[in-house]
Write a protein that binds this DNA or RNA. Structure first.
Lengths: 211, 211
DNA sequence: CCTCCTACACGTACGGCGTACGTACGACAG
DNA sequence: CTGTCGTACGTACGCCGTACGTGTAGGAGG
């Protein structure tokens, strides 16, 4: 067995989270997974919270930006948002850990740097770039939260949204009428829909400011 | 002392969450807060998870829609989103509980009903209404997550974003240059900025579809 | 070679958690 | 008066994070 290492511990934590959910994560479970004693972990990680920070950092650092600097900024923003979402989908349950945790590591900052550079390159000033960046972050994180919350990991069985039969159609006529659309969801398409909406709106506003 | 009741338990839980944070919530703490034995709670609540569902439901049910049916749909959507955010700010720490939890109660459905009715009244078909609704939900929830994560509850002290001094300006020039904008944030203004962006984009797209 | 030191794996133990289970007691029905 | 039921409660079990002390293997200094 290779020596115990912070990286190995984090990897085991991620694997455990993906397999059994974030609630199943405990120092004891992780130690058992690695075949070591519980307290051995503490030689490489100061505490559980730091370990989860490590998980967030590891997930974030897997983002690979295949960014084409020659492309139009709208396309670059689109690609960056999609990339972020894609890796989140690779680790759906760990994503919950990532978003529910303040990230102050360098791994979390690289995507920020890229996004800001793209926006500034598009001609936005500092204030605008940060503001736009925050809007995108909010949208992407909000989308992920809904998607992975609904994801059939296998804990929340059969409740994509709400049991339609149970809703009082008198009280909630719209929900009743639109239940087919509420129950089905092409996550990819809907994500792109909102993403394009935002990009379009910003592009339009940019045009107006210059015109 | 009034008799123990599900409502009183939920209220105590919310108060405790707001005062000491979500991590401080335990059945024992809540029972102590109410001056009762731990197991007495279980006569009114099946388990802790259901209690937290109750917290989410209670928070959501405090949303009051002062909705003007005569107003333009863009204004109505704006008001609804702002209202949602406002009550979330009234219970900042409980909001984390709300968004991190699947809500299937009638309290959670009323805002949905209102929003869908507004969109359908504006002339969107069912699929469009649901799609647009989901985009707004994602944006609002994502914004709240960032805002309350940064909120100086008093647990996460002095790390609004990232210690600027610690970032390597060589590696992250944009972050270094834009740090003044990254560190300060007028949450109200920035929320409205993104909200208006979305509404504008949808309005434009609607115009084009009809034109 | 022996010795000492450091680093790391590990066991034990403490306080806190959610909650299953059994008990005690007051209110009300017959 | 007696039986039933709903509620408050104590105890106990198996988890949890982690402080602390111990054992040991491997490298450095003599």
């Amino acid at each position: 067995m290779p020596p115990l290492t912070r990286a190995r511990i984090v990897a085991a934590a991620i694997e455990l989270i993906e397999r059994e959910g974030a609630d199943a994560v405990s120092m004891r479970r992780i130690a058992a997974e690695l075949g070591v004693g519980v307290m051995s972990l503490y030689n490489h990680v100061p505490n559980k919270s730091a370990l989860l920070d490590g998980v967030a950092e590891a997930v974030l650092s897997e983002i690979e930006f295949t960014d084409d600097p020659a492309a139009h900024w709208t396309e670059r923003v689109r690609v960056q948002a999609r990339t972020f979402r894609q890796i989140a989908h690779h680790y759906p349950r760990s994503t919950m850990v990532v978003v529910s945790r303040q990230l102050a590591s360098t791994a979390g900052m690289l995507p920020v740097e890229r996004a800001l550079a793209t926006l500034r390159g598009a001609g936005f000033d500092g204030r605008e770039a940060v503001q736009i960046f925050r809007v995108f972050i909010a949208y992407v994180v909000g989308s992920l939260l809904r998607e992975v919350g609904v994801t059939p990991g296998f804990a929340p069985v059969h409740r994509g949204d709400i049991r339609v039969a149970d809703v009082d159609v008198q009280l909630f006529p719209e929900i009743g009428a639109l239940s087919p659309h509420l129950l089905s969801c092409d996550h990819d398409a809907e994500f792109d829909f909102g993403l394009d909406l935002l990009i379009e709106a910003i592009a339009v506003r940019k045009q107006n400011a210059r015109g």
